[in-house]
């Protein structure tokens, strides 16, 4: 307990010291504050924009796209992974194509998404899905392959039919990997949506970042980044919590 408190104090001191150096270099213009921003100013900007509703509105718009992309990409990925696990031929057929698509920098697709779906919510969702889908698909497939060979041998020695092996061994074995994929996928979905907003505009947080940056307002950029950090770390913490509670192993299959 004492060491944990010590680490917390230490971390806070590191952040404080960093902020102080930043503040001082800006205040005494050791580095041009027009480029670096100034902590005392952007913290004030942050509080103001939270109070006047700019940040909450933008965050809500971004999070809507994230929620749709996460759900859609997640469902599609799980369905694909199930199909590929049940029919290995499908996996052999499609895995090189999927690997190639996954290696493609998705940012490069955003202009295409804009062309197809316009500048609204749909292109942001498409960008998020294009990342979420592949992250969760690869995690789920890896999880399904991580089945303990002893469990499969036991099932064989008991003469357990194939569909029950799938339900009762392969799926539960993949659960931890699926949750890891969901947690990582969520963060990457935020990334995909923000990138789309940076490029296409609209009303989300990404748009704010590009707006402040284009109007030479580094303090506005940093204030928006604070919002992004709060959102992604909260989402990540919530997912870790859910993951841990699953890790206690509730039997997902009824006896």
């Amino acid at each position: 307990m004492n060491t944990r408190l010590g680490i917390f104090v230490g971390r806070s001191l590191v952040i404080l010291a960093w902020g102080l150096i930043w503040e001082l270099t800006a205040r005494y213009e050791l580095l041009p504050p027009a480029f670096t921003g100034q902590p005392s100013v952007f913290l004030q900007d942050f509080v103001e924009h939270v109070a006047d509703g700019t940040f909450p509105t933008a965050a809500l718009i971004t999070l809507q796209a994230v929620a749709v992309a996460f759900t859609l990409g997640g469902v599609l990925a799980i369905l694909t992974a199930l199909t590929m696990t049940v029919f290995p031929t499908v996996e052999r057929l499609f895995s090189p194509i999927i690997d190639a698509l996954n290696a493609l920098p998705r940012v490069a697709l955003i202009p295409l998404f804009i062309l197809w779906f316009g500048l609204g919510m749909l292109q942001k969702v498409a960008s998020g899905v294009s990342i979420m889908y592949f992250v969760l698909l690869s995690y789920t497939l890896a999880g399904a392959k991580a089945t303990d060979p002893d469990h499969l041998l036991l099932a064989r020695s008991l003469g357990i039919p194939r569909w029950r092996v799938f339900n009762q061994i392969i799926i539960p074995s993949a659960v931890p990997a699926i949750f890891a994929g969901l947690r990582l996928g969520l963060i990457y979905t935020v990334l995909g949506v923000i990138t789309a907003e940076l490029i296409a505009g609209g009303k989300g947080l990404g748009t704010l970042v590009s707006y402040y940056s284009n109007t030479f307002d580094p303090n506005g950029v940093f204030a928006t980044l604070i919002v992004l950090v709060i959102i992604t770390s909260t989402l990540s913490a919530v997912m870790s919590r859910i993951e841990r509670s699953i890790g206690k192993w509730r039997d997902p299959v009824q006896l």
């Binding site: 002893d150 041998l153 036991l154 061994i169 539960p172 192993w249 039997d251 997902p252």
Partner: peptide, 8 residues
């Protein structure tokens, strides 16, 4: 090895 399933 025991081959017990950790989720059961």
């Amino acid at each position: 090895r025991d081959a017990l399933m950790p989720w059961r």
